[in-house]
């Protein structure tokens, strides 16, 4: 039988052992957990914006793999379709027409938006439901829809405005970094579908190294500010970008310049919780203490007598 160069191997038929699972959690929303026994190699997806041709194969692959069907939308005069992320659309190509003030050239910036898989995830910090958001030691931040209560706190917690709450099942959705594919040793569907290899996937160390070569190449072509987007404010991310203009990420459809978990969210989920519980417990403690020290305030028979005299007086 002739085999061709491009022929793919047949799919595996024997049982595939999962590579990681619940034992590898490093964070679990609204829970304290034991640190895992082992540390998985941190993985990352690298999105090279300079290589993207905007074909949206990744968007289609994402819908396909996750078995989502977004309703047919409306053309609102942009290539960014649908116009926003949604409970069905975990990833979205955002198109920006940018005129470079230095060269006066029109640059078509196409950024693949979606969950960044922060090392310090704001969604997980904000989530009130135990186990609805989990983080694995390989860097994946994943939602467990069974446990989600649909409050939307993750939306407030996220510095990238990623999670979307379904209006039908009231649960939060976002990119899973194809955790289900990764669990059996495969890469994300989007990376697999990308015809230009603008999306690549591997260990975070490899991806950072690979990015270096890309940045060098871009710099040699005149993109002085080309660089890697791996923002330290959220502890770094497990989805990274190579940007032609890394000094101004905001031109890429408002990619945040220095994303951090909002101080308001930190206060709300940190000091405010302790202060709140302490205040309520303090109030109860005061009541109990007062009860024992001062005791009840009772009306005396004399008071009743006074009242009687008062009420009888005006009649007499």
């Amino acid at each position: 039988m002739t085999t061709f160069e491009y022929e793919l191997p047949n799919p595996q038929t024997e049982d595939v052992k999962t590579v990681f699972g619940q034992q590898d959690l490093i964070r679990r929303s609204a829970s304290t957990i034991e640190p895992p026994a082992r540390q998985l190699t941190p993985m990352a997806k690298l999105i090279d914006v300079s290589k993207c041709i905007g074909c949206k194969a990744c968007q289609a692959a994402c819908l396909e793999w996750n078995d989502k069907r977004a309703p047919v939308g409306e053309n609102v005069g942009t290539y960014t379709i649908p116009p926003d992320l949604s409970p069905q659309m975990f990833t979205l190509m955002r198109f920006t027409e940018w005129i470079n003030p230095e060269t006066d050239n029109l640059e078509w910036l196409i950024r693949k938006d979606g969950c960044m898989h922060c090392a310090d995830p704001g969604c997980l910090k904000a989530c009130p439901a135990p186990g609805a958001i989990v983080q694995y030691s390989n860097g994946i931040v994943d939602f467990d829809h069974e446990r989600c209560i649909g409050c939307g706190y993750c939306v407030a917690g996220c510095p990238f405005n990623i999670p979307r709450i379904s209006k039908t099942d009231h649960r939060a959705y976002k990119c899973t970094l194809c955790s289900d594919r990764m669990a059996i040793g495969q890469g994300p569907a989007c990376a697999k579908s990308c015809p230009t290899h603008a999306i690549v996937f591997g260990t975070k160390a490899e991806m950072t190294e690979h990015a270096e070569t890309r940045i060098k190449d871009l710099k040699s072509r005149g993109y002085q500010n080309a660089g890697l987007y791996d923002p330290p404010g959220v502890g770094g991310t497990h989805v990274m970008y190579v940007l032609q203009h890394a000094d101004k990420p905001e031109i890429y459809a408002d990619l945040p310049n220095n994303p951090v978990i909002s101080p308001v969210v930190n206060l709300w989920k940190g000091a405010a919780k302790y202060a709140g519980l302490a205040a309520m417990a303090g109030m109860v403690a005061f009541g109990v203490l007062h009860r024992f020290v001062e005791g009840p305030n009772r009306v005396t028979p004399k008071d009743e007598e006074e009242a009687k005299q008062l009420t009888e007086d005006p009649r007499s």
């Binding site: 939307g152 706190y153 939306v155 407030a156 996220c158 405005n161 909002s262 308001v264 969210v265 206060l267 709300w268 405010a272 202060a275 709140g276 205040a279 309520m280 109030m283 109860v284 009541g287």
Partner: peptide, 25 residues
């Protein structure tokens, strides 16, 4: 906006804690 929701959330929980304290009194 998301930013408004953040302030609303912290205010809501602060007001809730306060009203529970007032209720205990």
């Amino acid at each position: 906006t998301v930013e408004q929701k953040r302030y609303a959330l912290i205010l809501h929980s602060a007001a809730a804690v306060t009203i529970i304290c007032v209720w205990i009194v």
